[in-house]
Amino acid sequence: MASLPENDTDFHAARRASDHESFLVHRRMRWAKVAGALCLSAFLGYFLIDQQPRPNGGSWYGYTLGTIGLGLIVWLSLLGVRKRNMSEGRWSLKAWTSAHVYLGLSLIVIGTLHTGFQLGWNVHTLAWALMMLVIVSGLYGVAVYVLLPGQLSANRKETTRAQMIAALAAIDRQLKHAAQPLGREQSDLVIAALEQDVFGGGAWARLTGRYPNCATRRALCGLPDDFRTMADNTGPEERVRVLLRRRDAQLGQIRRHLRLKALLEVWLFVHIPATIALLAALFAHVTSVFYYW
């Protein structure tokens, strides 16, 4: 039907990607392949090399695995710096994340083979355990990064956080106005709803999205639809009821947003402190190993 001018598309194709590609499948899973190869060779080495007297972190092969593992851990922890340091150059944070995920997973194999399965109650095993904790928390992170963004987007419905808050404030203003003609008992319910810290309830409420003490809900229960007085459904009570329902829906959207954001971020509160603890434990592990050589 038609011909395109060729020059533009050629130019862009040469320069950058034209489609969305997740960090998990970045460059046809290049880093998954690298990490897989690393694990495979570590396994082969472990079973083919005759380690005397038994597989151990102190054999030459154990030292090799330990050095690789240490190098990887230090490099993996540098993602936090890379992410914040917006320097020039042809790097992409997506490639870093991809490598971080797959090489991090390969540490399960490398680190565990390095122990020679000699676990005990000591600083060495502490380092291994911390490493596993970091990896498991990271796995949770990968899982929520895959599962939740779609829900976050669907819940947002093109509104920004600021707009959601502004919409709530607008409903509150209308509610205040509309509740003036109500009786004492009912206006107390509305006042309680308006005065409540709607996002309070602590970390648990944030993560589960359950707010059992929600005063807006209570106010809705306190102003039930009275079907016997259907004729009078334009009165002040009905207006307040409509506004309360709207407020409830708006709160629901904001709370779902906060919940999803919290689920997307909560693992970092384990992942990062555990990484710092791991680096400290590794320092102790390496120092003690060399001290008691």
């Binding site: 598309t9 990607a17 489609d19 917006m86």
Partner: peptide
Amino acid sequence: VRACPTGAAIRVA
């Protein structure tokens, strides 16, 4: 685009 950790952002013709 470079700073997107998950590959969500692209600039494209």
